[in-house]
Design a protein around this nucleic acid. Structure first.
Lengths: 246, 246
DNA sequence: CGAGCCATTGAGGCCCTTCAAACATAGTGG
DNA sequence: CCACTATGTTTGAAGGGCCTCAATGGCTCG
């Protein structure tokens, strides 16, 4: 398949997601879809797409690969704030602030579309439906991050990892790139540790517990959820997901 | 002083904050200021202003007293997501989603202004400057929550509490209701525990450590920061604050 | 084939938790 | 006015979850 065709498929994935989330017709996003195709670009694994303190550009959409938002503390420790999955957006309205308050890095090689600041502002100005969908996406994203915060504060390691797997699988499933309890899971145990506030050693041991409990298999960057309902239950998972527009 | 006068002063506090944050003239917020005065109401301490799962109303602004956002887990544990201080807004665009993904409760007796959903939508539609300021406020708020997430994941108890005190004092100072390193601090040690992911017992002991290190005094719901620079340093505090509009 | 990254395992120890009880403070009703 | 109750703070003791340090082995890649 030609590269352009793949890009178009991925652009469609983004707009379909926005249309669903905002309960608006796909036709409202035709202009955005064209723009995405024109502005697609790539970055290697571990590349920083934007760093804390830099001025933020406009709208950025992940077409393929995984990225993550993170903050570095002055003592050198890193906290991941969230994973950015294919089909999702990265802080679409961050450019309202003068500077980024966190960094964004590629976890794997990524393909993404990047609109400039003025281009973004023109787009949302001329297309209120797009603007509305972007805000809804932003609120959705924040909701995911809030559940994450609850994890860090109140869940023990076993529950935290279980919750992470539920969260990721269901989000990938929403976008149509995960099915039958299988999905990609590229983060290393070190990455998972930075995301969950655990040491990589303890992540390793807790993963063994999850496997021993027959909840998951995780090998070669592929995750299989052996028992989704049991995993949800272990994760204290409650779906504030699927919450679409009013 | 008559009640109406007090409300007007507080409404002015809100609009001044929005004007500063968005770098727009105060005059742009005259309509909002009038609306606030008309829609002011009160609630007692511990009252839930809105609960997770309920449909969210429109814009809500804290005029006096402290509130908090929180999530309850199915095991009964509570995680505070953030404190809502006088002059701040509560999820101004939450009504884009069908249901609240968290609850909002009064920590002290509170005065707040509550606009209805349609009223809110009309306001932001007719007054783009207000809409812009509300979004900037939202992004600011999210930035604070993100720093909070980093705290829960990467800071030890001592640093976490130190960071909390820096955060609160500086935010109150921004709104002009804290000076000379003094401010109100109404949360109980239990509340602080739910906010920081610590047990109230350990909060108590860590507070003693902070006092012993000559960093703070905290008695009778009043906080005094004995040495702000030392406290910031202990908190690994880095100001992504004061980041105003682009 | 060495270099580097990642997963895994062991050992020791500290941070923080839970349980429990005593103490202080404030508001309530008889 | 003072028991009485409720709420919050403080302290002690014991234990466990998770951390750090350290070393080994598998895998990929230049």
């Amino acid at each position: 398949m030609a590269r352009e065709d793949r890009i178009e498929l991925k652009a469609r994935m983004v707009t379909e997601r926005l249309a669903t989330l905002s309960a608006q017709p796909l036709a409202d996003f035709a202009v955005l879809e064209r723009l995405i195709c024109q502005r697609a670009q790539e970055a290697p694994a571990h590349a920083d797409l934007v760093r804390e303190g830099e001025s933020s550009a406009g709208i950025r959409m992940m077409l393929g690969g995984w990225a993550c938002r993170y903050k570095m503390l002055v003592n050198g420790r890193r906290q991941l704030l969230s994973f950015v999955l294919p089909g999702e957006l990265c802080d679409p309205y961050m450019h309202l602030l003068a500077r980024m308050d966190h960094s964004l890095a590629a976890l794997t090689p990524v393909t993404y579309a990047q609109l400039g600041r003025e281009e973004s502002e023109r787009l949302v100005h001329d297309h209120p439906a797009v603007a509305r969908a972007l805000w809804i996406q932003t609120m959705f994203e924040i909701g995911v991050e809030r559940e994450w915060t609850a994890s860090l504060g109140q869940r023990v390691a076993f529950q935290r990892l279980a919750h992470l797997f539920c969260d990721i699988y269901l989000r990938l499933n929403m976008t149509g790139i995960a099915e039958d309890n299988w999905c990609d899971f590229p983060p290393t145990q070190g990455d998972i540790g930075d995301a969950t506030g655990l040491s990589s050693v303890h992540v390793n041991r807790t993963l063994q517990d999850l496997r021993a409990a027959n909840l998951i298999t995780l090998t070669n960057k592929r995750l299989f959820i052996r028992n989704l309902e049991a995993l949800k239950s272990a994760a204290l998972f409650r779906p504030s997901y699927g919450v679409v527009a009013h």
